[in-house]
Design a binder for these strands. Sequence first.
RNA 1: CCCCUUGUAGUUCAAUGGAUAGAACAGGAGACUUCUAAUCUCCUAAUGUAGGUUCGAUUCCUACCGAGGGGACCA
Length: 558
Amino acid sequence: MKPAEQIIDALKKALADLGIEGAEPVLERPADMAHGDYSTNVALAYAKQLGKNPRQVAESVVASLGMYELPVVKIDIAGPGFINFRLNEGYFIENLKSIDEEYGKGNDLSGKTVLVEYTQPNILKPFHIGHLMSNTLGESLARLIENAGAKVEHLNYQGDVGLHIPKALWGIRALDVDINDIHAIGKAYAHGAQAYENDEQAKAEIDALNKKVYEKDPEVMELYEAGKKTSLKLFEELYALLGTRFDRYYFESEVFARGVELVNEGKEKGIFKESEGAVVFPGEDYGLHTRVFITSKGLPVYEAKELALAELKAKEYPDFDISITTTAVEQEQYFQVVFKALGLLKPELDGRFTHIAHGMMQISGGKMSSRLGNVITGESLISSLIAEVQERMGERVAPELTADVAKDVGVAAIKYTVLRQALRKNIIFDEERSLSFEGDSGPYIQYTAVRSRSVVAKAKDAGITPSFDVHPESVGLVERMLERFPEVAQRAAQEREPHHVATYLIELSSAFNSWYAQEQIIDVDDALSPYRVALADAVSNVLARGLWLLGIRVPVAM
RNA sequence: CCCCUUGUAGUUCAAUGGAUAGAACAGGAGACUUCUAAUCUCCUAAUGUAGGUUCGAUUCCUACCGAGGGGACCA
């Protein structure tokens, strides 16, 4: 039995001794480690019922607890009546021995299959910051869920139909750009999009082009396919850089036609209605918004395609338990409508699809808008960060390693910025801050991981074998932090909040660095040196594992 | 006008209804001939406003104020 279970058991008996039957004591992990390893508020919670003040109740409970065998060295009463438990040192030592590459894995979701769809870029358009954020979040969620025992399928859904296509194709022809040059295509798209707004003739041409794309007219297909190839090649390069990979790439073109069919089926069942020539889902009947699914021109909009995509996922992964889609919060209410319609149309899929939103990237001191011309693409953000890292790295690492290390560190900086805070809240992008690799940052954690690994390697050279067999009388903050990692990982998976892991890793790094500054780890004449080396090794393992959960690599050197 | 989200040091973020609200950056003072100073140590500094629920509220509820997003043929 785990210490927490033993303590809860004893608390139940102690409360029963005081005349409270069927109590469900809550055992907390105090945020402040000085308050012990576990804490309970039972004295405060039951004081009123017992007609005594909380500290008196706490004293009675503690007296009664003395009769039961518990894995603790100390029980304190603190503050208004909290009862704090400090676990046996031996428990922490045993835990340290159990730390390996598998440490922190759970089984909350074992036997489950979870689909995670993320990134969703559009071909012939820039890979923007939203895609970068969705990728970062989706990758981390996928890993957290896998770590909790589930089988995870990594899915991507890429836009290869829609009005952005003819806009880009029109621009490509107008500017006569090289179809193999992704940046030129990006400019061509901007040119086409602008012409569509401001130029009547261009608009007519683009609309005509759109029709040809839908009809797969050979006149445009060659250019379309070549452009698609160029886009997908860039996306693959970015995925490799970001350390992400997908099991299945869906395309809008795969679900386009089926979307129309599904909505028409739904119309017969009375789920959708005709309105002003379009087919809509009357979301207002369910406290949501009414939205168009098929336009008056008979074309399916994103909503309709999403229904077909859901159907396709269910067909390809019939045993899936839950399907997660990550996008920006701006699409939150839209997904509520889509999933409501889906549940009515396909009752067997009701409740199995969910949307998880990241916040929007905002420029500090203003809004990012294409009109203001301060839009940063995801690609340019990554490359500018990598360049900055490379420049600051100077002579720190061997010249042949700098390119790879700069990539790992630059990507970590941007990923950490996205994952460090709770979901849904907007992320303020501050250039100066994002270029700072100190303190509360991904590179800080990476640095700590590299540093801990390095000291273990040095110890090996010095002939010290890591071991927990000879250990100090009392364990410190680092040992206690390490013991909490599995709970943090499980909680992050359960709440689908990667930032719990990010916060934990910063705290662990800080505890380790502080310890590192005051201890001489390698000392061949010190009987405790093997313990300290083993502890550094454990920290190295947990930092690497935690960073993996965030989708961040540990560089070979820093 | 309606709906959703959000408001914590100068700034960017934490805090499963609990204890002295925790970090980082910025500012001030220190620490590298010593295992990686992208580090460490110390100091200054915050819960939008008004009510309510509770033994206890940054957290839950109501109103107001501010910010972001959504609201039929874009995604």
